[in-house]
Amino acid sequence: MSILGVTQRTLRKDLRLEWRSKDAINSMLFFALLVVVIFSFAFDPTAEESRHIAGGLIWVAFLFAAVVALNQTWARELRNQVLDAYRVSPAPATALFLAKALGNFLFVVVLEALMAPLFVVFYNLRSVGPVYQLLVVGALGTWALVVNGTFFAAMSIRTRSREIMLPLILFPISIPALLAMVDATTSILTGSASPAFWIRLLAIYDLVFTTVCLSLFETVLNAE
């Protein structure tokens, strides 16, 4: 079977599983909601202030929520030794990785689409800059988090204290991406600066790390 075929089938299987259980999306949504509420208590911002800090708040909430979903990516495959079956099957490892990363991307995008209105309401947000740019930043930023997150989740599943390990290795590597997302979002919301540099940086980050992930995944999957 071709790479695309395996990717498509694995992705469809994951989406169906998620559609029936709604484990990842429910836990992410509730978690993000809690972060939004707690931040709002912690900072108690006015409309003008919130426009300046919203970029940071939104992405920190999404980052934490994404970790919840990312941790479940491979845990599902440990039951009944599905991961071992993948390993011995002739299906290309990169296809499996792509399917998992795309699945996580869709979950986090759904979360963002549901949470964004809530942010607007709770923080009285109104964008000064063009909103369509936020969509670009959102897509590139989410992929940046998810592609490395999916890879590191496959690594942390092999360690003791699995769930703790993922953020410990994901956050340091993601710092430039987070900086880019937060700054791009803030400059669009406040309309103070052009987000062009940050969008380009995110695109480079995505390109570089997608390549690294795809080329190293088979090695990590087969690590004994």
């Binding site: 490395n148 360690t159 003791r160 390990m165 410990l168 340091p172 790390f209 190293l216 690590a223 004994e224």
Partner: peptide
């Protein structure tokens, strides 16, 4: 921070797969 994360991974990974996982993370870093 990146290299402390690397050392943490080495500490928490178990058994013979530690070197492979660590080497992969080193390249990311």
């Amino acid at each position: 921070l990146i290299y402390v994360a690397y050392l943490m991974l080495r500490r928490f990974a178990s058994g013979g797969q530690t070197p492979v996982l660590a080497a992969a993370l080193a390249i990311f870093g």
